[in-house]
Design a binder for these strands. Structure first.
Length: 403
RNA sequence: GGGGAGAUUCCCGAGAGGCUAAAGGGGGCAGACUGUAAAUCUGUUGUCUACGACUUCGCAGGUUCGAAUCCUGCUCUCCCCA
């Protein structure tokens, strides 16, 4: 199981933005090989947003690699921090989660994470186990291990401070709590995105304060979302979830900007660097990026679903967007028809859930974005018929079932 | 404890008594085009029983024929001094 130092380093380094400090990682690995003792690799998870998306998988893939190298993987569910609520930015305090919600989220998390990691060899722990027992005295002792100036070095604190945005005192405790997790677990390595640098190093410092060997901080890049600018996140709605349907995944991948294709290949697939380089060269030589995007979509769907789903998704995509046909499976919506079955289209669209309001529906209609059975309509009042397919824009469909 | 500044629509940000459902940008949606739900261009972007009506500028009152704009109180945020 144990690979040579060189090989391990090769795998560990791949894709990582920064490893701090590198020489200590080498030492830890040497020791691990010598004593045949796996390293403890830690990753913290926030239980408030239980939908894992490709952005998270960048780090998870790395964790998987450690796992395959025979090291010990520990996932920390940050239920304690989640219970307190983290008011990031603005005045919108994040709602506090109940124990029940957290447990539910944690279960969802595990299910999704185990699409990547091996459940049998992954330890999952909750940080409330130790943090919930902290006395005020313990809190003070922990807080005394750092200074305000140091905390304000953290990027987002610094920005908010400079932009005159509010920062709650309790927010200062987040890095401390996360860092303490490392102390509790005696972690050897902690993974995170580059935005976690401060927190990871805080863990290292705290471990030393508590007389332990400091952990290694390994940072992976932050994946941009579908817009290509902001980081992928659920709240920005620019994400591809690992539980998205093949159809959704396909469409979403096709909507990324062409410039992002290679980066996605590198960060969220297991294709070799050689393969990726070849594609990059072919594109610069003028090959259609669309075809590589299709390959990317199929690769991703293959990872989270399977190859035949990927092919189906591709066919459907081509039918709808290239050939302008209707999809095979359209959501059927039951409609209680009163009287003669005549409807004002904006209202109908709203009832069917294709638009948010009748005003919205009117706008879409005015911009000739409504089709019935594939034909653009120009009449605002229509008579509904059973099995009629109403379409808004290119991708919203509903089949009416009259009750 | 004292003194200043501020809160505007999904977000950022103009507006300083009627011409304001509120400039501009971002985002969203639709259309055109296309090699893609890329890029580009155009339109649109409070709600409704829809050529009209109703509700929105932190919250609650008040002045006025008329308030996002003026007054009072409250809530929240930031800065400076101590």
């Amino acid at each position: 199981m144990e690979m040579s130092l060189e090989k391990q380093l090769d795998i560990i380094k791949r894709g990582a933005v920064e490893i701090l400090p590198m020489d200590e990682l080498v030492k830890k690995l040497e020791k691990s090989i010598r004593n045949n003792k796996p390293l403890k690799v830690k990753l913290g998870l926030d239980p408030s947003a239980p939908d894992i998306h490709l952005g998270h998988t960048v780090v998870l893939q790395k964790l998987k690699q450690f796992q395959d190298l025979g090291h010990e993987i520990i996932l920390i569910i940050g239920d304690f921090t989640g219970r307190i609520g983290d008011p990031t930015g603005k005045s919108t305090t994040r709602k506090q989660l109940t124990e029940e919600e957290i447990n539910k989220n944690a279960e969802t998390y595990k299910k999704q994470i185990f699409r990547i990691l091996d459940p049998k060899r992954t330890e999952v722990v909750y940080n409330s186990h130790w943090l919930a027992n902290f006395k005020f005295e313990d809190v003070i002792r922990l807080a005394a291990k750092t200074t305000v100036a140091r905390i304000l070095e953290r990027d987002d604190f610094k920005k908010r401070y400079e932009d005159n945005q509010p920062i709650g005192i309790h927010e200062f405790f987040y890095p401390l709590m996360q860092g303490y997790d490392s102390v509790e677990l005696k972690a050897d390595i902690e993974l995170g995105g580059t935005d976690q640098k401060f927190n990871l190093l805080m863990g290292r410092n705290l471990q030393k304060e508590y007389g332990q060997e400091g952990q290694i901080a390994l940072m992976m890049p932050i994946l941009e979302g579908l817009d290509g600018i902001m980081k992928m996140s659920k709240s920005l709605n620019n994400y591809i979830g690992v539980e998205d349907s093949p159809k959704e995944m396909f469409g979403k991948v096709m909507s990324i900007k062409d410039e992002l294709i290679i980066r996605y290949f590198k960060l969220v697939t297991q294709l070799s660097n050689e393969e990726i380089n070849i594609m990059e060269q072919e594109m610069t030589r003028g090959k259609n990026p669309r075809d590589y995007k299709i390959k990317l979509a199929k690769t991703i769907i293959g990872q989270y679903h399977n190859a035949s789903d990927a092919i189906k998704a591709e066919e459907e995509f081509i039918n709808i967007f290239s050939k302008n046909q209707m999809p095979e499976n359209i959501d059927e919506i039951e409609l209680m028809v009163d009287g003669d079955g005549n409807y004002w289209v904006p209202k109908l669209l709203q009832i069917l859930g294709l638009v948010n309001s009748t005003s919205d529906g009117k706008r879409v209609f005015d911009q000739s974005g409504v089709k019935i059975n594939g034909e653009k309509i120009t009449e605002v009042n229509i008579k509904v018929e059973n099995a009629m397919v109403i379409q808004v824009g290119k991708r919203k469909f509903a089949k009416i079932i009259i009750k």
